[in-house]
Amino acid sequence: DGDMSPSVSTAELDHLVQTISKSHLETCQYLTEELQQTSWQSFLQAEVESYQSKPRELMWQLCAVKITEAVQYVVEFAKRIDGFMELCQNDQIVLLKAGSLEVILVRMCRLFDSQNNSVYFDGKFAGPDVFRALGCDDLITSVFDFANSMCSLRLSEDELAVFSAFLLLSADRSWLQEKLKVEKLQQKTQLALQHVLQKNRREDGALNKLRSKVSALRSLCTRHTETLSAFRAVHPDVVRTHFPPLYKELFG
């Protein structure tokens, strides 16, 4: 969409990148230094087997709790993005309901060890086999593949921050009441993303590569919702009584 976006000075873009990056680091849940301290320790075989032998509903509950924890950090991130809190409350909810899991999936690559194809989960690094009890191996494989592909882009923290903000401010979400306002914010964020990519001397296709991730993210989030409703059809009582209320509100 080559339409003329709002003219924004380089200084303004620098400032925007800095504020979004600061908000990201303040709300990223895990600082890379903390992860280094865990020395990237992965689960022992016995620990893997104990996850695998958990009843399906217990593993689902554990993952729902972890996702819900992460969502709350993404909400704090959104609240710090310039202009987000000036949107109407309906649109704040629409953008977070649709975008929080996408940001979590992008943030996941900060916690991902691509040599061992494992993600930081519940205190150590877990391979896809840890999640076998969930009964949705194909979705887990796709999530791990996505994390691997994000890792291979080797995005810096400020690039991750601005890309996360760009994802959250998606003007094409349905049910938005002030679509134009969101569009303007997203265009400015896209300029900031182009700016930080150029500043970090990324090759030309970098922005397009990032934008191509959006469809993969949307598909993963749709599959998560479908997998959850299939699980709930079998275990309605477990979801009603043991799943975090915020998780049910967003994804139920």
């Binding site: 909400v75 704040q92 909810i93 509100e249 967003l250």
Partner: peptide
Amino acid sequence: LKDKHKILHQLLQNSTS
């Protein structure tokens, strides 16, 4: 939408922690 997302709405209202 707000009444269907009371918790999210509350999180948005809380002062930035």
